[in-house]
Design a binder for these strands. Sequence first.
DNA 1: GCTATTGTTCGATGGTCGACGAACATCAAA
DNA 2: TTTGATGTTCGTCGACCATCGAACAATAGC
Lengths: 112, 112
Amino acid sequence: MKPANPHPDVDQLHLTDVMSALSDPLRVGIVRVLADGNEQAWGDLRVPVGKSTLSHHLKVLRAAGLTRTREEGTRCYVRLRTEDFETRFPGLLTSVLQAAHQEDVGAQVTLT
Amino acid sequence: MKPANPHPDVDQLHLTDVMSALSDPLRVGIVRVLADGNEQAWGDLRVPVGKSTLSHHLKVLRAAGLTRTREEGTRCYVRLRTEDFETRFPGLLTSVLQAAHQEDVGAQVTLT
DNA sequence: GCTATTGTTCGATGGTCGACGAACATCAAA
DNA sequence: TTTGATGTTCGTCGACCATCGAACAATAGC
């Protein structure tokens, strides 16, 4: 239940991990949904996969340092690590989000 | 021997393909070597893998639209599709290269 | 024509990945 | 306390990937 994975420190983010995390359309979709900076509950993510698969994808995003997870009771909330990412890889997240929007990658992921 | 793979058109580049291509340190290294815009002969690429593996990686980069291959006699030359890429995904290649430089990803790849 | 160079292609191998369902753990609410 | 909701973990499956060596094709140069 607890997101056992620790969040990697800012200076421990690896580019190839980020690229690998963003090579899946579903994960790009999750990032896009979080792009406005707001925190979202996992249950509010509309995703066409089972919950174990969603858990897996969120773990990948967390391990890559793209997102931060907070738990409150039995629910988990996730948000983008926008500032940390801008510090480590300036401009990267912005251009990725712009490209994803342009191509409409990950449109399968929506909010409730 | 001919790079049978066609080069994808500018409007057919997919973000996830690019991300997938750049999730391998060796391929990032190749891109970094080409970052100055100069064309390079394949044989001048110093890469710690066999020829068939290098051929495979260059095929992946070509299929993702990151590079363009030209053949001249028995030799092949490769260069970055910088302008095409800037047209399709503005700022993406720049920030990726900056991030790769900052982390020194793909330092295993050099020139003769 | 023969040979060396260069790059492609073809298995084979071992590793990773995305997806699923089932079982488990934790907490809230009835 | 019992029930329901929420995530995690595990085992499994099929697909893909990086790597290698060997065999093949095409061209340059002798």
